[in-house]
Design a protein around this nucleic acid. Structure first.
Lengths: 127, 127
DNA sequence: CATCAACATAGACGTATGTCGAATCAAGAG
DNA sequence: CTCTTGATTCGACATACGTCTATGTTGATG
């Protein structure tokens, strides 16, 4: 399965080797799930709970959006493998799946020994 | 936990404290820029270059897309603060801006001492 | 069984996004 | 100056996305 991650140690190595087309597609889904302010806040609220679980009834009132919309965003986060939900009685509790965030963090972390790209000689006024 | 180092400068601490609405909007733009397979591969190709710079003429033929489309994606990556471009003579060279990827990596990295959410372990009342 | 509350799903609608071809701008060669 | 090559910008279009209202499903309660 994860054939090429062994080549660099762990993961698909976004920053150290050109990304495979298939890997790029998989990763894009996850990043796309993070590419929305509402979902980012939802993930943040879920992840920062010490117990690790948050009831939807606690999430919904924090936004100025309808309940189905929140439910929709939670579904996308779940489909991206970032969170998981479980029904307990009347309420549904969501929790973070740290495996995915760990993987992303690893992808975006430069190897320690990697030389930073030498900055251009004299940055001028243009950005 | 003194999670947030600065209001807008360094580390909004996605996983340890609820994300601010404005921070979420800013972050979402960056993640949205990463939420496309083509852009992920472009970023990967640029970042993995040892010299740190890649000519557009090297990037375009790697895709089955028109040159304007590649240029469009590069523009989005640049607007997200992930890469920067510089024209040298006929060709334009792009390079990674590691500050942004470092920031994202930090956001997605859990603090070492942070207790991982135990999967349905605590039967007691939730806080 | 009837009813209510918490979430999820379905369909609809406006906007954003990815893509293209054509036009335009920038730099070098004849 | 003109012509060619590299790259961005522009205008258009199909699709995807975020949001809503309406409806369905699940579980608790009387």
């Amino acid at each position: 399965m994860r054939a090429q991650e062994a080549a660099d140690g762990c993961c698909p190595a976004l920053l150290t080797s050109p990304l495979d087309e298939e890997q790029a597609g998989e990763l894009a889904k996850v990043f796309k799930a993070l590419g929305d302010p509402v979902r980012l806040r939802l993930l943040s609220m879920i992840a920062s709970r010490d117990g690790g679980e948050v009831c939807v009834c606690d999430l919904t009132p924090a936004f100025d959006l309808s309940q189905p919309t929140i439910s929709h965003h939670l579904k996308l986060l779940r489909q991206a493998g970032l969170i998981d939900g479980e029904r307990r009685g009347t309420w549904v509790h969501y929790r973070l799946l740290p495996a995915m965030t760990d993987r992303l963090a690893g992808l975006l972390t430069r190897p320690a020994g990697e030389p930073l790209p030498a900055p251009a000689a004299a940055p001028g006024g243009r950005a």
